[in-house]
Each structure stands twice: as C-alpha cells, then as structure tokens.
Design a protein around this nucleic acid. Structure first.
Lengths: 249, 249
DNA sequence: GGTGTCAGTTGATCTGGATCAAGGCACAAT
DNA sequence: ATTGTGCCTTGATCCAGATCAACTGACACC
C-alpha cells in the first residue's frame, strides 16, 4: 500500500482569534498564507470554498460543453480529463492528483473543453470562478497564484506535445507522477497507478500493448518494478536520463 | 502578395478630451475598451506599453533561461518559439502572428522556458508583467483578458498534443493559420508562410520531407495550391473534414 | 466450482512516416 | 556565367510502434 497522509485532514489557520479550516491539499492555501495577504480576503476565500463530493469511480465531474462556473482543487482521489475525437477514439488530456487544480482550460470559452471523470473516490474544493477572480483583485498573492497555475498548465501541455519515443514518454510520465505524488507528501518512489494501461496509452499517444511492453522492458532492465498497478521506481537516475529530452532539466 | 493592413498603424482612442494611441494589433485594447474599465487604468496601460523593435529576421527576442519580466504582443511580423532537446533537435513550440501575445508560459517559473526568434521584421508591444498584473487588480476587464489569454494557450498547446495523422495535423495547421491571419484583417485564404518546411515539420512533429509530400498531395487533390511559401486554401470544407478531429468543432 | 468480464500480456504482422540519398530551384556573391 | 548555399522536392528503404489475434489472470457474482 501507499502510505497516505489523510487526504481529508484540514490545516487550521489561527488568525487574530478567528480560525479557518483550509483542507491541507487546497492549492490556494499557499497563496493565502503568503506574505502580504489581505486579512478579510482570507476570510472571503474561506467562505467561497465549497467542499464537494464524494464522486464515485467512473462518475463525471463535468462534461465537454458544460457551462464553466468554477475551478476545483482535488482534495482526494484522482481525476482523468479526456475528449472523444471525431472517430470515437478517446484522447486523454491529463490526470489530476490531490492538490492540483482542474478547469483552468475552460476559462477562455466559459465552457469545459473536455470531460472529467473520477478514477477513484474523489473529493473536491470548488471555487466559484467569478468570485475567486473578484477576490484576486484584492489579494495580489492570489492573483499571482492563479497566473502561475495557468502558466504552469501551458508548460505541462507543451511537454507531451513533443516528438519523443515511447521510452522517453514513459520515463517522463513516471517521473512526473512521482514528483506530483511527492508534492503533497505521498511516497515518491512507490505508488499506485490509478488509471488503466489504456488510459496511460491514450495519454502518451501510444497503444496499450506498447505500454505493457515498455513496462515489461523497464522492469527487465531494472528501472522499475511493476505488478498490476503497483509501481516502484528502482533506478531514478537512469529514468531521468531517458526522460531528459522530455522534461528538459 | 498578401494584402496587408498597415501593421504599425495606431487606433486613437478619444476619452474625455484625452487621447491614447494604442497600436491596432495590441491584444489588450479590447480589454481596455470593454465596458466597466477604469479610466485612470486606461491611462496607466498606455503608459506602461513600450513599443520595441524592429527585430531583424533571425534575431532572438529572448532565449531559454532568460529572466522573465514582460509579456509582449506582436505588432508586426512573425515569431517562432522553440526549444532544443537533449540530442540537439529543435522542437518548435509555436508561431505568433500580429495581435498575439508571447511569454505567458514564462510566468510560472519567472524564466523563459523557450527561445523566441523573429521570422521576419518584427515589432512588439512590451508590457512589464509586474506592472500589468498590478494594473489588473484595478481593471477587472484586464484581469479577465489575461486569464482568457492564458487559458487559451493551454487549449492551443493541447491541440497538437493529440495523436493525429500527418494529413490531419497539416489540415488543422493550415486552417488555424488562416483563422489567425483573418483575425487582424489579413486575407483568410491566401497567405504567405513565413517559416521553412523544416519549421513546420518540427512544429507538427513530422519530417520536413513529409511536409513536402503532404503539400504536394493536398495540391494534387485540389485542397490547396502551394508555390514556394505562397499558400491558397482552395477547398475549405474538405480541409475542415480532415481537421475535424484535431480542431474539435 | 463455474463462468463472465474486463484488464493486461504476449506474439506475429503490417504500415505511416522517418531516414537516407540524390537532385533541383531560386537567389546572392564573385 | 559560375559557384555557392539554403531550401525544397522526390525516390528508395527502413523501423518504431500500431494493429490484429490469442491468451492469461484477477475478481465478482451466481
């Protein structure tokens, strides 16, 4: 098993006698706790958070074309976003782990450009976008955080756009997952894949058979150990060499 | 030749006796002219614009790793952004035409994640990012516009991440160029490619030979007519059918 | 225990596009 | 005119990864 920090635990923030319970995975906590925040803004942010869920495995959080009203941070569980192309093939656009923010790509057209589905039991922190944008005008730290998150997603999308081999993609994918699991305190080298081989394949633009074969070869070469969905990264430095073109540093 | 609107012309904006000269291609004009803007904000935005250039063909606007201090809208000319991967191969990330904004992907790390080079004679409108962000706290319309632009770029990057054939990619590329040329008033169906076949290939993750062959085949099939870098789209509806999976609507 | 189902594996074959190789074409410098 | 020198085209061959097909293994339900 993964060693999991309790994903639903909250971090109480004492402030002048008031106390706000931000969930520990909320992506905006940092912005709010940053220096120079507006005290009443902190209260407002707390008020406009809505804890929603649980969503069961397979349940949709939103669908392509739905009106966009809110972004959401994952509190617990994992989410897959995808579109279905003209020929009915699924293109996976991304996976979202605890602490990560979903929905930023919907801002520009005010509609969700993709579907989002729970890969296991998912809890979210929901933020009305008009409200959080209004609040951001009073909290420069929050505005900065939003700009940062949006900008990060551009970079993330650019990664898998590159022209890379199956091995490079897979190594980058595993290291990326590792980094992102480690961020909120999960184990960096042993983790549970929450998606099917087919999902991974659709994300990396490979066939699922190729995913199987690369896993097998990586295991035979001592890079990883994989058993069903349990992954252990056994040779980070060789994985990093494989992934260096994709991850660029 | 393309029929070009004068790219350096300015749109004078009369406002209570004051008059500001925003260049006609400046991507923020719209935000500033939207309802509910702050009058002094308009003045401030005007002040923080810096018209820079010209950059000659081949000259770099910035390089990977450079400190990020400003975003820029293209006033005239075309820009290519790219990275060079571990094996020395160039990966083209995007092309920027008049009216489009460069540098948004640099916000999150405060450094440019790529190189930008002029493809012909380029003029820019430069906006200090700290200043424009500060101004955005007073002009909700400007903040919205920034969010929109950032969000749009996520979608743009997601497009070419998909798993598409050479024909689909090329058709989508041509239609996308057409749409983007048309936006600031250029001819939508006849235009000049400003980049080499190799650039297009690196952008679409193809070999330049493949780009040549697809052009030739598209021409033989009556979809386009191409002569050196002069392109004419001759059958938009068939191109749209080819591109429908990529462009998704 | 049987049997359905879905996820994953493994092997055999096929193919889209890459790579390799050889010219061609437009334009600049001598 | 001659000789570059990029850029582009065209043809021949190759190969990474897709596709097709058969099978396995885990788990749920009767």
């Amino acid at each position: 098993m993964n060693d999991l920090p309790d994903p639903l635990s909250s971090a109480p923030i004492a402030e002048d006698g008031d106390e706000y319970n931000f969930c520990s995975t909320c992506a905006f906590s940092a912005a709010c706790l940053g220096s120079g925040y507006d005290k009443s803004g902190l209260r407002d942010l707390h008020v406009l958070v809505e804890h929603i869920g649980p969503f069961q495995e397979g349940e949709h959080l939103f669908r392509e074309g739905d009106a966009f009203t809110a972004i959401a941070a994952v509190r617990a569980g994992a989410v897959k976003t995808y579109v279905v192309d003209a020929d009915g093939r699924e293109q996976v656009q991304g996976f979202f782990l605890p602490g990560e923010v979903i929905g930023l790509s919907a801002i520009s057209r005010a509609r969700f450009p993709c579907n989002a589905v729970a890969l296991d039991c998912v809890h979210l922190c929901r933020f009305s976008f008009p409200n959080i944008a209004a609040l951001a005008t009073r909290m420069p730290g929050l505005q900065q955080q939003l700009f940062r998150l949006l900008s990060q997603d551009i970079g993330k999308a650019t990664l898998l756009a590159g022209n890379y081999s199956a091995d490079e993609r897979m190594a980058a994918f595993l290291l990326e997952l590792s980094r992102r699991y480690a961020a909120p305190g999960f184990h960096a080298r042993r983790f549970q894949l929450m998606m099917t081989r087919t999902d991974i394949a659709n994300y990396l633009r490979l066939a699922s058979e190729t995913v199987s074969r690369v896993f097998r070869r990586f295991q035979d070469e001592g890079l990883i150990s994989v058993q069903r969905r349990q992954i252990e990264l056994r040779d980070l430095s060789r994985l990093e060499i494989l992934a260096r073109s994709v991850l660029r540093q």
